Measured scan of single mutants.
Amino acid sequence: DTINITLPDGKTLTLTVTPEFTVKELAEEIARRLGLSPEDIKDTHNGKTLDPSLTLAEYGITPGSTITLEIK
């Protein structure tokens, strides 16, 4: 299953994830792909900052969802 990550420059990154991924694991994968530190990444969905300890499923993030990435 894939989700879309909207980057600060407007580009989109597509990642393969499972509903059990935590937001922290997602940030780590994004950081790895972009050459950043996971601590520099802030993920938001529907205007809410995502708690790193919760899973994508707990936020109702499903395949095809879009998450907005902010760099701290």
Rank of each mutant, 00 (worst) to 15 (best):
D1M: 14
D1N: 13
D1S: 14
T2N: 07
T2C: 08
I3Y: 03
I3Q: 00
I3G: 00
I3C: 02
I3A: 01
N4C: 07
I5R: 00
I5G: 00
I5S: 01
I5T: 01
T6M: 14
L7N: 01
L7P: 01
L7F: 13
P8D: 06
P8S: 12
P8L: 10
P8M: 10
P8R: 08
P8G: 09
P8C: 10
P8I: 08
P8W: 10
D9N: 12
G10H: 05
K11Y: 12
K11A: 10
K11F: 13
T12L: 09
L13G: 01
L13K: 00
T14D: 03
L15P: 00
L15F: 07
V17R: 00
V17C: 06
V17K: 00
V17Y: 13
V17T: 05
V17Q: 01
T18Q: 06
T18I: 04
P19L: 08
E20N: 12
E20A: 12
E20M: 11
E20Q: 12
F21Y: 13
F21A: 07
F21K: 07
T22E: 00
T22N: 02
T22Q: 02
T22V: 01
T22L: 04
T22M: 02
V23H: 01
K24F: 08
K24P: 00
K24L: 10
K24A: 13
E25G: 04
L26S: 00
L26N: 00
L26F: 10
A27E: 06
A27N: 15
A27S: 12
A27D: 05
E28N: 08
E28T: 07
E28A: 08
E28K: 05
E28P: 00
E29T: 07
I30H: 00
I30V: 11
I30E: 00
A31C: 09
R32E: 08
R32G: 07
R33P: 01
R33N: 07
L34I: 06
L34W: 06
L34T: 14
G35K: 05
G35P: 01
G35W: 03
G35I: 01
L36F: 11
L36H: 06
L36R: 09
L36A: 06
L36I: 15
L36Q: 06
S37M: 12
S37W: 11
S37H: 10
S37P: 11
P38N: 07
E39A: 14
E39L: 15
E39T: 15
E39Y: 07
D40E: 13
K42V: 15
K42P: 14
K42W: 14
D43W: 15
D43F: 15
D43T: 15
T44H: 07
T44L: 15
H45Y: 14
H45S: 13
N46I: 10
N46A: 07
N46L: 12
N46M: 09
N46Q: 05
G47M: 08
G47A: 02
K48W: 10
T49R: 08
T49H: 14
T49S: 07
L50S: 03
L50W: 15
L50R: 02
P52M: 14
S53F: 07
S53P: 02
S53T: 11
S53Q: 09
S53G: 08
L54Q: 06
L54D: 03
L54H: 08
L54N: 05
L54E: 03
T55Q: 03
L56I: 09
L56A: 01
L56Y: 01
L56S: 00
A57E: 09
A57R: 13
A57T: 09
E58G: 03
Y59A: 15
Y59K: 01
G60E: 03
G60C: 04
G60L: 03
G60S: 03
I61N: 01
I61W: 11
I61H: 02
I61L: 07
T62Q: 11
T62N: 08
T62C: 09
T62M: 12
G64W: 02
G64I: 02
S65T: 11
S65C: 11
S65H: 07
T66L: 05
I67C: 06
I67E: 01
T68I: 13
T68M: 13
T68C: 11
T68R: 13
L69D: 00
L69E: 01
L69I: 14
E70K: 05
E70R: 03
E70N: 09
E70W: 06
I71W: 10
I71Y: 12
I71R: 03
I71K: 04
K72W: 11
K72V: 11
